[in-house]
Nucleic acid binder design. Structure first.
Length: 243
DNA sequence: GCGACAG
DNA sequence: ATCTTGTCGC
């Protein structure tokens, strides 16, 4: 995937917040994605070694079959601390490096963490979408901001996530009884469309487990298939893939 | 002033 | 994010 690495990167919380304020107006909140989304990427971020190493795991799934077609894993020294509201400044450098290693360029990226559901409307999904100019959706495992009605326990149940009168995302029950996911638009996508794609990806590689898949690939890579990038022939007429 | 707080 | 204990579901 073609990725342009930022020439500069904030080194202080104040500089990071200033950048968020400068970028927030550039986030596109309406649908501007391929009418035929074929590849969806799932990005997981986190740290290791007590916080000194930042990790970015990416899987690319063919949509809607959800077959794994590519993945990448990148670890590098952490250069920015974790501060609620400033997650992207710790994680995005590794994410960009991982995305750059992809053979297949995704049409849509589901990113671990919030999108618009952020104090300055610039969660990591929005920030990432702007940097790679790709539609993104924030899929978080817990809440940063916002309120919502009590959610039924049934799979598929969802409720708007609101900040005052503003709807900033949704809470979605991906499996009956489990904790809900916090879905919010990142860049170039509307909330209804975001929910559509998250639900479309959930049956097989449920999020945030989509993200965990990359982890498993990484830890199993030494005893299982070392590499699984599979190229899908765009000209393929009738599905002749049998694996 | 106090609690909340993506990963 | 991590750790622990207890419970539930496949």
């Amino acid at each position: 995937m073609n990725v342009i690495m930022p020439e500069t990167w904030p080194q202080t919380p104040a500089a990071a917040i200033a950048l968020q304020q400068a970028l927030r107006s550039r986030v596109v909140c309406h649908d501007d994605l391929s009418p035929t989304v074929q590849f969806v990427a799932g990005v997981d971020v986190g740290f290791e070694s007590g916080g000194t190493i930042t990790r970015a795991a990416v899987v690319v799934l063919e949509f809607p079959s959800l077959q794994l077609v590519d993945y990448a894993l990148k670890k590098q020294p952490t250069t920015f601390p974790y501060i609620p509201g400033l997650l992207s400044f710790r994680e995005i450098p590794a994410v960009l490096t991982a995305l750059a290693a992809l053979t297949i360029t995704p049409d849509l990226i589901l990113c671990d963490g919030q999108g618009l559901a952020h104090p300055r409307r610039l969660g990591i999904a929005c920030h990432l979408g702007l940097l790679v100019n790709c539609p993104t959706i924030g899929v978080a495992k817990s809440r940063l901001i916002g309120r919502h009605a009590e959610l039924p326990l049934d799979k598929g149940a969802w409720a708007p996530l609101q900040d005052g009168e503003e709807t900033i995302g949704a809470v979605l029950r991906s499996r009956t009884g489990t904790r809900p996911l916090y879905i919010s638009p990142g860049h170039r996508i509307s909330l209804p469309t975001a929910l559509h794609y998250v639900q479309g990806c959930t049956p097989k590689y449920r999020l945030p487990e989509t993200t965990r898949l990359a982890d498993r690939l990484a830890s199993n890579r030494s005893r299982l298939p070392p590499l699984k990038p599979v190229n899908i022939d765009v000209d393929a007429q009738s599905g002749n893939q049998s694996d």
